[in-house]
Amino acid sequence: MLETRELTKKFKEHVAVHNVSLYLNEGESVGLLGPNGAGKSTTISMMSTLLPPTSGEVHFKGKDALKNPQGLRQVLGVVPQEIALYEELSAYENMKFFGRIYGLKGEKLEKRIEDVLELIGLTERKKDAVETYSGGMKRRINIGVTLLHEPEVLIMDEPTVGIDPQSRNYILEMIRKLNREKNMTILYTSHYMEEVEKLCDRVYIMDHGEIIASGTNQELKDILSSDETIRIDVESLSSEFLERLSEHPVVQKVMQEEQGYKVIATKGDDLLGDVFDMAKSAHTKITGIVVQTPTLEDVFLHLTGRKLRD
């Protein structure tokens, strides 16, 4: 339905996005995952015909959407990363304006505004200026404004950044509903693994402007099928222990955490026994040890050697 072909964007000499090809099938919910500065926003800016790419193409329903953006623009909804509203105006006034921009008017517009206000749970505050809203409410109206014209494709740029878990669940639930009930095609950008794991059928992982992996949640985790993740909690961190762990032949990656270490290692070998020996000789007391099934977070760690969130 919507597809990019080798999109590249350079800002002067800096390559923000490099050869990104991805696609969204109709009714699919797809995640775009990557750390800060990975190039997610830049990619979706190009997909939404906002930013002209340095090279590459965007196709919508088989047509070149950069040369002929009207078809896509009419049915596209984009939720910007930052709150993009006239904050001195009320939720209602904002919705009225943005609805009109998409050609809605009269009773139809009023009805849509009512429905969306209901959906985002802001009916009671609709007359208040947006600047008086809480962070979570602003996030919701920021999404709501995008839903008025019932977009076929909804692109969301980190819509849950910086809000409390309750609002966040509310928003995630709402998106899931839109996807399931209205068959909306969704591209969801985030650096929260849990969100993407819960919400999306398929995931692209981006780093340094490139897509480094893609597939369903399961496919991505299968990258780690031959590996296992071990969490080791210790009484106090020790650089000697860390060094020994890293040097162990079956260990691939070690991440230092607050109370211990996270180790990704090849399955099968008897690493656990060695771990206790190494701890002993480094005079480190182990307080707990857990073998985990991998998460997308681990996949990212495996692929890049870094954690998603610093």
Binding site: R73, E82, A84, L85, I101
Partner: peptide
């Protein structure tokens, strides 16, 4: 800066 301009640009307007 606020991003409302962007909203206008990727709209059909």
């Amino acid at each position: 800066k606020m991003g409302t301009w962007n909203r206008l640009i990727f709209s059909p307007l």
